[in-house]
Design a protein around this nucleic acid. Sequence first.
RNA 1: UGGGUUAUGGUGUAAAGGUAGCACAACAGAUUUUGAUUCUGUUUGUCUAGGUUCGAAUCCUAGUAACCCAACCA
Length: 551
Amino acid sequence: MTEEKSLNFLEDIIEEDLKTGKYKSIVTRFPPEPNGYLHMGHATSICLNFGLTRKYGGYTNLRFDDTNPVTEDTEYVESIKGDIKWLGFQWKNELYASDYFDTLYEYAVKLINLELAYVDDSTSEEIAELKGTPTEPGKDSPYRNRSKEQNLDLFERMKNGEFADGSRTLRAKIDMAHTNMLMRDPLLYRIKHAHHHRTGDKWCIYPMYDFAHGQSDSIEQITHSICTLEFVPHRELYDWLIEKLEIYPSHQYEFARRNLTYTVMSKRKLLQLVNDGHVKGWNDPRMPTISGMRRRGFTPASIINFCDRIGIAKRENATDFSLLEFCLREDLNNTALRAMAVLDPVKLIISNYEDGKTEEFESENGPDESLGKRIVPFSKELWIEREDFMEEAAKKWFRLAPGALVRLKSAYIVRCDSFDKDENGNITAIYCTYFPETKSGSDDSGMKVKGTIHWVSAQHADRAEVRLYDRLFKVEDPSAEEGDFKDYINPDSLQIANAFIEPSLKNASIDQRYQFLRKGYFCLDEDSTPEHPVFNRTVTLKDAWAKEVRK
RNA sequence: UGGGUUAUGGUGUAAAGGUAGCACAACAGAUUUUGAUUCUGUUUGUCUAGGUUCGAAUCCUAGUAACCCAACCA
């Protein structure tokens, strides 16, 4: 953290603006549309906008871009606010584009008075037809040269609800032959007799994005209005409107949206996953939504650190999912409490251990001693992981096999003597001898083993449902593949294990993160009840053996 | 056949004419009562072709490729 980090291009611009005295402090905004849940892409924008004002002084507004009443809802407003707070950011003002509808209407009238806007009676098909194409210029609308008085009158009557939806629009009068399609008389207002989540039925005309966003920035005196690359062509219009309206000159800057491998990140596609039942909801732990990731067990610190590491630039990108996993593990390794859980159990019986005897061992809760220790009970019959035993030891196999020795974590070293198998060839029991002098903490045997495995005492174990999540898609970029992106969904993205867990996990709390030794990081799910605990696997541990096997 | 934006290892991101760096990933090794963590090391890169310069990722010229723009969405 002490080493100097190079600046991204936005920080360069801001430092220059501050140095030259263009601004004394900066103001940014996070402008979500309240029509869906926030996802990892929004997290990048949140970290950027809030991070910049945190670093350089100033503040960030939360502004809901609620100019389209038919898709928006207060339900989303609440979830968005909750997600931002969970990430640990605090906005200065909670604002809504709809707060400015009166001012925006005045702005539109001003434009008409300047003869820079007109009411168009064309249908949407006619408008599209006259718009031209990127390679061909458009043609003027027959309504383009209406008088100022007539435009004023018609626009007011649009506001008063005299016309049907779609029958008229207000358009800026710029240049139908402009090489930038957005400058070919862009639509400013459209008629929608729709109930708005905040303004109710007061309005039946609503401003378009281009006539709301920049103007809202200006009203709030946003110094740096940061958005994604697809808005680059809008900047010309953004500046044009500010200039003609003679209002505070906010400036728009664009960065490339962040993509992540093995997932999709558009609201539309995420909505399909929900609606088609591929996931159980917006907060399904497999979803790249903030609420899904929170439920999965991601920490705010890991997400913020990730956003920090991937940086900001203007080129197309797809960040390795493994970097996100790295950030997650890095945080969780330091904070997660250790515990033992056996996900795919097989019985281990210690032949020379006294029937009915119980011992209690101490085991560390984590790498940091301040996390303390906990008691784990031990007895003659244990559950161990099925995959920790091999009938015939492979090369470099450190775990249990006939004749092989392993340490039972925090307990004794055992040697495998024999095993039982059913008619299907499944191992049903493993018989071992333990060495009393190898007791953890007071081992003076001098015996060395290569492997240590986790276990749970059969008579003390509790049951738990463990949900093992994996990536949602089988391919790096599902949207780029042939056919529908949903064809590439990973059918094994969720597997349910009926696990045995150690007794200390009875006290698990929903805010605590756990490392099930050698298996990964887990957290309690909201579906959990005291009678039926449910854990989510947040992420696996790195697994050198799995890699060895692949070779 | 228009306009705009972008090209640096497998991935992401630095280097404002002067040693192509950092992180993830991959690979090799050390340590380890988690095959985890930690530590050490290694491999891999300036879109192409010319030019300017003592010296070019950076400047110039000409190409090439990718992405965005023809919603009464944002």
